[in-house]
Nucleic acid binder design. Structure first.
Lengths: 226, 226
DNA sequence: CGCGGCTTTGATGTTCATCAAGTAAAGTGG
DNA sequence: CCACTTTACTTGATGAACATCAAAGCCGCG
């Protein structure tokens, strides 16, 4: 498949350190994978063979803990790198990745990337920057989840989808209440109760999966102060 | 200062990709900093100028949240890289670093490291591996702290210092109850109560800061199942 | 000596999980 | 298409987990 994606962020941001001929090789080695919502396309424990980039859609990184409970590590949105946290440190995935909306995944063979890293210092440096930033984001979110109350946690999730993903005041929540619980560490019932309370207090409107942000600054205040 | 540290892990692990002459340059550029316990030697918000490695001692990474409360991100032990989570992604530190035991810090100028990354692919790859692993460890610990109960959290801290730092059943706890609280997101009183309960249940013995592990498998069980 | 910070314990209240029950919504096989 | 099952969602009642407030002892330090 030819690399015709002119507006592809990975190309403009990440591969601008490449020479034209290198870039061409790259694009030829690229495969694109369309993943339907709900499908797990990376399974915890499987061998890592490729470098994956989320072109469009929405995904979740998740894993099973010692007691068999599912925990969601983070949500990934377009221009995020799917496998970046494991790919250079481990041979096997320590988490699974599932699409929560229909997604398009760009896949590159690991050897190609490894080769580039070892021969192109600028590219290697970009990789370092990118992996570090991606990890820092997860760490920062996790630190929030350690000390915030249930209100702050749930407000954080709603604001994430509003400000970082959809950027409109009305949107369909792409995750179930159960998934919010798995991400925040709260129980399902608590998540539901908090959402209902936000609704009763006039912060949001809720119709099933559909959410409308009514009082943005109120939500932000809750997120920041509790 | 000459690089005489034959048993320095950073040298054997990290710099074995270097040619002898590069290594020599490196060692000449190295400065060593002795930091007394309690001293904050990296301050949140300050510009990042160097690459730092913890040769001996013990440190904590910490930051202030929106509400001015201190939160501890992680503890660093010998052979950990002090500033690795920020250094390649940001210009300024997003956290502070304080010694919690007398520590020896090896410091290299950033430009030197940058240069190596861009000219030595093997070295760059090592850096990628190392940063990724360091971040993954913090992420994994944070995920634990999100969903474990107060018993699991405190058991985790005690087991960390026992298994990863001192490796003897009796040791002086290098952190205050307050610092355990700042790390786990619990209140000081809750930390104290849990420690007292562990003592009453015969899992540990406590004399002030001194801890003795009595029932290791009991602690591990609590850590893994709650 | 007195002050401030760390530690401990008790009493009390809030936050949150669990259990139970019921409704809505969505897939499944006939 | 309808009965059927399953899964998601919701609410209430209850109890456990945890925070907060108050008080007091301990210890290092100027």
């Amino acid at each position: 498949m030819l690399c015709t994606c002119e507006k592809c962020k990975i190309r403009n941001y990440f591969f601008k350190t490449l020479q034209p001929e290198d870039l061409k090789n790259f694009c030829n080695a690229r495969t694109e994978l369309i993943v339907p919502s709900g499908k797990t396309f990376i399974v915890q424990g499987k061998k890592i063979k490729s470098f994956k980039y989320l072109q469009s859609g929405l995904i979740k990184l998740h894993k099973k803990d010692n007691n068999g409970r599912e925990q969601i590590i983070s949500f990934g949105k377009p221009s995020d790198f799917v496998s970046i946290h494991n790919i250079f440190a481990e041979d096997y995935y320590s988490y699974s990745v599932t699409a929560i909306e229909k997604s398009s995944i760009c896949t590159f063979d690991m050897n190609l990337i490894m080769n580039l890293i070892k021969t192109n210092g600028e590219f290697a440096f970009k990789i370092i920057q990118t992996t570090t930033k991606a990890s820092n984001k997860i760490i920062s979110n996790s630190l929030d989840l350690i000390r915030k109350s249930m209100y702050g946690k749930v407000a954080g999730v709603i604001l994430f989808f509003y400000l970082k993903v959809y950027k409109t005041k009305e949107f369909e929540l792409p995750v179930s209440r159960k998934e919010i619980a798995q991400y925040t560490g709260l129980s399902i019932e608590t998540v539901i109760r908090v959402i209902s309370e936000f609704r009763r207090d006039g912060l949001i409107k809720v119709y099933g999966k559909s959410i409308e942000i009514v009082d943005e600054s109120g939500l932000v205040f809750i997120y920041e102060h509790s």
